[in-house]
Simulated assay, not measured.
Amino acid sequence: MARPKSDDKHNALLLAAEQVFAKRGLAAAPTSAISKQAGVAEGTLFTYFRTKDELVNALYRSIKLDLADALMTRFPRTGPLRDRLEHLWNAFVDWGVANPQRLNVLDQLSVADMVSEESKAVGYEPFAEIEALAQHNIDSSVLHAYPVAFIAASMKSMAETTMAFMSAYPQEAGQYRETGFKVFWNGIARNADS
């Protein structure tokens, strides 16, 4: 009879993969290095994940769901759009500053061919509400008529710049978080004062 799988080992392998991918990059990270980082035999890794692709997809889902939890747990579903987007902004930059390794690895995984369409769909699902909110406000002429994907990419880029400044100047982190959001908001809102 096979031994039951341990959640601790499963989680240790995901964390080890995250650490190794952050240091070496996804393509240059052999499963042997991940096993070694996790403190298990390489065969143990394949007990939990049949292939490196399966491990990559599990890690992608784990990080996306962690990010979704940070952004959406206290997301205000009513109120002015600016306040709602500022909540998302603050949650994202705070998560990124607290989890730079996870953000680095998520950036790598987001463009990796190994991440399946199914995993991308699972990772996207918690954020569908934000896309719908943005599209509604574009249609209502609150936001400029930019593609939602462009707005999301602009937010990510500006947020990552903000995170870099928050990390480099921690005593001024609040000021950079606020300034970064203002720059983002002014770029997408038709009437930035609303």
Rank of each mutant, 00 (worst) to 15 (best):
M166C: 12
R190T: 12
E86M: 10
T162S: 08
Q175R: 13
L143H: 05
V93R: 05
S6R: 09
Q171A: 00
R61G: 05
E131T: 11
A33M: 01
I34R: 04
N104Y: 03
A149P: 00
E160G: 04
E86S: 01
M114G: 01
R177N: 03
F165G: 01
A145P: 11
L67K: 07
E118L: 13
H10S: 14
S116W: 02
R74L: 09
F75V: 03
L13C: 11
F127S: 06
R3A: 13
D193Q: 14
R84G: 12
F127Y: 14
D107K: 08
A112F: 08
L13M: 14
V115Q: 06
R24D: 10
A29N: 08
S194L: 06
T31A: 05
E160Y: 01
F92S: 13
V93C: 13
S154D: 03
D94M: 12
R82T: 01
P170N: 12
N11Q: 15
V183A: 05
V97S: 06
K23C: 08
S154T: 10
H87A: 13
P76M: 03
K156V: 07
A58T: 01
G180M: 09
V105N: 04
D69P: 00
L81S: 07
A152T: 08
D66Y: 04
Y48I: 14
W89G: 09
V111E: 10
S141M: 09
D94G: 04
L65T: 14
L65H: 13
T161Q: 13
E129P: 03
F21Y: 15
G123A: 12
D139W: 01
R102L: 08
I151K: 01
N57A: 11
S32G: 02
E118I: 06
A17S: 15
L67C: 13
S62D: 15
S167Q: 02
Q108P: 02
G25S: 04
E129G: 11
N186T: 02
D83V: 14
M163K: 07
I151M: 15
S140C: 03
A29R: 13
V183Y: 05
T51K: 01
Q171E: 01
F75G: 11
F21I: 15
A70V: 08
K52W: 00
T179I: 04
A68C: 11
